[in-house]
Computed example of a mutant assay.
Amino acid sequence: MNREQISGIAHAGHPIKAPLDDDSVRGLLGHGAPRGDERLLDLGCGSAEWLLRALAAHPGLHAEGVDVSEQALELARR
């Protein structure tokens, strides 16, 4: 089993690849981008769950995601 498969199993059922529920994610993003026009950099972004949620809540953000997983980046592009 490779690293991506293990990560997929470990994070199954979570809205993002972290043990947080939707309300917690929303609250953290609200505190992290209070003006709504900030620049975000997500290193190890995976399939960009954090960035996509941040952009949905604050369309004026400028977001960059970086990851080594081609599979995760392809999911993010879709």
Rank of each mutant, 00 (worst) to 15 (best):
Q71H: 13
G60V: 02
A57T: 01
R53N: 03
C45Y: 01
R35V: 12
L75W: 11
D42R: 03
H58Y: 11
R35M: 08
L61A: 09
L73F: 05
A72V: 01
V25M: 03
H58M: 07
E70C: 07
G44M: 10
E70S: 13
G44I: 08
A54P: 05
D67R: 01
A56P: 06
H62G: 13
A57S: 11
D42N: 09
D42A: 09
P19V: 08
G44S: 13
K17E: 13
R53S: 00
R39C: 09
L61D: 05
L43C: 12
L61W: 08
L41E: 07
D22C: 02
D21V: 11
V25S: 02
E64R: 10
H31K: 15
W50Q: 03
K17S: 15
E70W: 09
V25I: 15
G27W: 13
A33Y: 07
A54V: 02
K17F: 14
A18M: 05
V66M: 08
G32C: 12
L28F: 11
D23K: 15
R35W: 07
A18G: 13
L75R: 14
R26C: 06
V66Q: 10
L51Q: 03
E74T: 10
Q71P: 08
K17Y: 12
G65Q: 01
D42V: 00
G32M: 11
R53H: 06
